Amino acid sequence: MDEPQRLLLLLAKTESHGGNGSETQTGTLTPVICVDKAPEELTDFRSLVAEADQVTRDWDLILVTSLSGTADNPPTSEQAEPHLHKMTNDVLSGQDLSRYVIFDRNENLVFIHPRDGIWTV
Rank of each mutant, 00 (worst) to 15 (best):
Q54C: 11
E23A: 13
L10N: 06
I62K: 11
D36F: 00
L42S: 14
D60C: 09
E15A: 00
K13W: 05
V32H: 00
A80R: 06
D60F: 08
R46V: 11
N20H: 01
E40M: 07
E40F: 12
L109K: 12
L29N: 13
D2T: 07
N73T: 13
I33C: 07
V35T: 14
L97P: 08
L8V: 00
D72P: 05
N20A: 03
A52K: 01
L42W: 05
E78T: 14
V91K: 05
S22Q: 12
E40Q: 14
P82N: 00
T43K: 13
S68T: 10
V35C: 08
V101H: 03
G19I: 00
P31S: 05
L9Y: 01
Y100W: 02
V101K: 07
V121E: 11
H85Y: 04
L48I: 05
L42V: 14
E40A: 15
F103S: 10
P74W: 06
T56N: 09
T14F: 02
S47L: 12
A50S: 14
D2Y: 08
C34Y: 02
A80I: 10
N89A: 13
I33M: 14
V91M: 05
P39D: 04
N106G: 07
D36G: 12
D53L: 04
L11R: 03
L92W: 00
I33P: 03
L84R: 12
E51D: 15
L10G: 05
P82G: 00
F45K: 08
Q25A: 03
G94T: 02
V32E: 11
F45S: 06
H85Q: 14
N89P: 05
E81A: 15
W119M: 07
L9R: 00
N20R: 01
G19K: 08
E78C: 04
S22I: 02
T56L: 07
G117M: 02
D53E: 15
N20D: 04
P75A: 14
E78V: 12
D60S: 10
V32G: 05
L42K: 07
H83I: 02
T88Q: 11
H83R: 12
D58G: 10
G21R: 03
H113M: 13
E41L: 00
L63H: 13
G69R: 06
I118M: 06
F103I: 01
L7V: 11
K13R: 15
G19Y: 02
E78K: 14
V64D: 01
I118K: 15
D116C: 03
T65S: 15
Y100D: 04
T24A: 12
P114R: 02
P74G: 10
V32M: 05
A12H: 00
L63E: 09
M1V: 12
